[in-house]
Simulated scan of single mutants.
Amino acid sequence: MTIKHSLLAILAQSPCYGNQLRTEFERRTAHSWPVNVGQIYNTLERLERDGYVSRGAVNEHGHVMWHLTDAGRAESESWFHTPTPRTHARDDLAAKISLAISLPGVDAEALIATELFAAQQRHAESARVHDAEDNSLARLVHLAAVQRANADVQWLLAAQVAATTGASQPSAVDMHRPRRGRPKKAVA
């Protein structure tokens, strides 16, 4: 979820000022994603530059009210109707474990054990918070954390098996100089 689209979605309900948007964002995400007001204003300025929002009048308390433009409303609606991409393009934990298993001299088994313990702790803590939460919105957000922590535990158990059974062997850095430029075209 992006701050940009979240702000557009909130502004689709009513014009707001910056700190009001921050408060609404945190409330609607069950305070699971804290954001500072400076980030809100930076995002609003980019949204204004891109034609998605406009500055309105200053209210009686001196706050600039931000309004959604037609382009902003269309962007917000499009975001809600487009599936959220869930790529594996950047998974810090997977990259760290893959490097540990493939590099000589790194105790991958100890690293995996440490990460597994931490994931199990996150899972247990997330489950406790989820069970104690009264607000249904907060319960839903915390359920996502429980499921992600559980997925991490399951994946780390599989990585532990791969590391202990030698499914992947450490290898030295390839000392051949990489070719620069574009690969040669195949001759037909």
Rank of each mutant, 00 (worst) to 15 (best):
I10E: 04
A71S: 11
A74C: 08
D70T: 10
N19G: 09
D152H: 13
A159E: 09
I3G: 02
A95W: 12
R49I: 05
R22P: 04
P183H: 04
T164C: 02
Q154M: 12
G62Q: 05
R180K: 14
Y41Q: 08
E75D: 06
V129I: 12
I97E: 01
R180M: 14
E77W: 04
L21A: 02
L111Y: 05
S126D: 06
A145D: 14
L21E: 02
S54N: 12
D92I: 13
M65K: 03
S76D: 07
D50R: 02
W79N: 08
G56Q: 01
L68T: 01
D92Q: 15
S6G: 14
A144Y: 09
D134L: 11
H63I: 02
A132D: 13
Q39T: 09
A124L: 15
A74R: 12
L99V: 07
H123S: 07
E109M: 02
V58L: 09
E109R: 03
W66D: 01
A162Q: 05
H123T: 05
P104D: 06
Q121Y: 13
G18I: 04
Q20Y: 07
P183L: 03
N59G: 03
Q13Y: 10
H63Y: 14
M175G: 09
H61S: 13
S32A: 13
M1W: 09
K184M: 14
A124P: 06
P104E: 07
H63G: 01
A132H: 12
S136R: 11
V173T: 14
R177N: 10
A94T: 10
Y52G: 00
H142L: 09
A186E: 15
V161P: 00
A132Q: 13
A12Q: 08
A159V: 02
E24M: 10
D70Y: 05
V37F: 05
R73E: 08
I3D: 04
G38H: 11
T87M: 07
R128A: 15
T114W: 10
V64L: 09
L111P: 07
W79Q: 03
G51M: 00
V146L: 02
A71D: 11
Q120D: 13
S126Q: 05
C16V: 06
S171Q: 13
A100V: 02
T84I: 09
A162E: 05
V35M: 08
L68D: 01
T23K: 08
M175A: 13
S6R: 06
M1R: 08
L111A: 06
G166Y: 00
S6L: 06
E45T: 11
V35L: 09
A71I: 04
T114D: 15
A110I: 06
E75V: 00
A149L: 05
L111D: 06
G62V: 02
R22V: 06
R179D: 13
R128S: 14
